[in-house]
């Protein structure tokens, strides 16, 4: 198993964080958070990958066949659900921000400081 998928996961996380830190639009920022999260999908699936293995469904393959790790797939699925919840909630808050503050630029939100 090469180290490439792990580097890719780290790279995606950093790209997401960079976008989040420099974002000028809140919807873009929510997207960046989703990008940062997708690094965890890549990492989880990379952890469970086995060369030459098939999907872990034993209905039509003989027992004993090499399969990829089903646990990480369950984890990734849970992770997707968590991510969808967070994204939906944050987007709803962004809609409210647009209505109340009249802007979606984080630079112009100045209600709380000091």
């Amino acid at each position: 198993m090469s180290v490439l998928p792990y580097l890719v996961a780290g790279w995606i996380f950093l790209v997401g964080v960079y976008g989040l830190a420099t974002s000028r639009h809140l919807v873009h920022a929510v997207g960046c958070l989703a990008v940062a999260q997708s690094s965890t999908y890549v990492l989880l699936l990379a952890v469970g990958y086995r060369r030459g293995a098939t999907a872990p469904v034993f209905s039509d393959i003989p027992p004993g066949t090499t399969v990829v790790d089903p646990v990480v797939q369950a984890l990734a699925l849970t992770d997707v659900v968590v991510g969808a919840t967070v994204t939906a909630l944050l987007l709803a808050l962004v809609v409210q921000t647009r209505k109340r503050h009249g802007t979606v630029d984080p630079d112009e939100l100045s209600g709380l400081k000091g």
């Binding site: 920022a29 958070l33 808050l93 409210q96």
Partner: peptide, 15 residues
């Protein structure tokens, strides 16, 4: 949600 500050605080919290 109908006030301006709570949504901003919740966004910072969430991110």
């Amino acid at each position: 949600v109908e006030e301006s500050r709570p949504v901003q605080g919740a966004l910072a919290f969430g991110f």
